[in-house]
Amino acid sequence: MSEKILEVKNLKTSFYTHLGEVQAVRGISFSLNKGEVMGIVGESGSGKSVTSLSIMKLLQYPGEIKSGDIFFKGENIVNKKNKEMLNIRGNEIAMIFQDPMTSLNPVYTIGDQIMEVIIRHQGLSKKKAKEKAIDMLRLVGIPSPEERVSNYPYEFSGGMRQRAMAAIALSCEPDLLIADEPTTALDVTIQDQILKLMKDLKEKLDTSIILITHDLGVVADICTKIVVMYGGLVMEEGTSKDIFYNPKHPYTMGLLKSIPRLDLGEKKRLIPITGTPPDLIKPPMGCPFTARCPYAMKICSLHAPKYTKIDENHKAMCWLLHKQSPNMKMDTGVKRGVINE
């Protein structure tokens, strides 16, 4: 099961605005195996959404991919024309967006919107497509799909719309599903339903999923692999356990320290990450996290660190991991919950 479905190599994406070039993504690399669920974590401006749009090749003016390669099923799609991408998008790579209120077209029925994708990519007849649309709605857990298929988006609640979006995204059984903050706009109980749905779908269809979010709880829940992004770069990458129990980058530690834990009894003061993210028009010379890092050293502000491999799957970009670096006492932010039973 180590078939690589997606491989991103040294991807750089920029937006050319009047203020200058905003280097949203500044050379990131990662890969995703079949059936894996990867989480991309980071705050706004870290480049996580731009990464997903770059993979989908849905960047809008003035954004463009500056350099790098994106291999999807072994094929480089960076230089694919829009026309060729049409056959990949929606069919082999599908996407779920953050806002379920605006990502469905209000003048078509839910059924029409699912059928459109099915007819476009699978060439089924209208009747067959409708049957499939109903099946998809049932799969994503919408009650009485036979009736709901002819409803308009406004007749659906937020959670149901997000399920409908998932139905559209999954109707062609894509190999890769990119979910950009799929639950951020939803309530926790509905978020819970959507996350369960994604887990189920992964089991049933063996879809690879990239989940972009800032919610570490969501990531812990369903991701097997995590990429932590900051300032347009990957700060740390590893399995879910690596990131949560053995973080090596001060930014990852900072994230873990700044969120309260519902399950841990004692009420401790939160430790925020001070300051604000860097301006990507003039990205800092060295490590982008230097200005907010409690362990920043002279070298951090001058030179960007290289990746240090901690083990097979776990790597981080930090000078502290260099063999010459002084040993510092660090609060890693790891809090182990008590597991009942």
Binding site: S157, T189, L195, K335, G337
Partner: peptide
């Protein structure tokens, strides 16, 4: 109870053990 159980905990081992009470239907 349902509300509390639906919140994912940022701790993989804990959150995988958590049994959430799924609420049926809509508000």
């Amino acid at each position: 109870k349902a509300l509390l159980s639906a919140i994912p905990i940022p701790d993989p081992d804990v959150t995988h053990k958590r049994e959430s009470v799924t609420l049926e239907g809509e508000v």
